[in-house]
Amino acid sequence: MEDFEPKIITFACNWCSYAGADLAGTSRLKYPPNVKIIRVMCSGMVNPAWVLRAFRQGADGVVIAGCHPGDCHYTVGNYYAKKRYILLKELLKFVGFDDERFKLLWASASEGKLFAEEMTAFTEKIREMGRQEKLRRKIE
């Protein structure tokens, strides 16, 4: 796998995880540039179809990051996120897609360190798994 740089899409909720990612930045904690963050107002607004579309558009890994259970700014958005996450992951596994490429992460605004570590670990894992070929749109 020469020169494989994984592309990771992270949907991060505005109130916790995005702030956490920001904190990681301001505290000069390094996490790989492979991680592209898309800020959303709440993990509960991440449509599972976006996750699938990200894979289709060539993401090697997708993360949904939100507030810890009980901490969601909109009270229960992250519970919805988790419900959908479980359903989608199970379906992906069922159809034979590597569901390991899809991850849910709880990270609060003060957990910059955790965010950086988790992103690093996930990027490394995806690097080992190699390119995501199954859903990637190919020029045919």
Binding site: P48, R53, R56, L87, L91, L135
Partner: peptide, 9 residues
């Protein structure tokens, strides 16, 4: 496949 996953979800 994506259509069907979304549909059943």
């Amino acid at each position: 496949l994506i259509y069907h996953i979304v549909r059943v979800m």
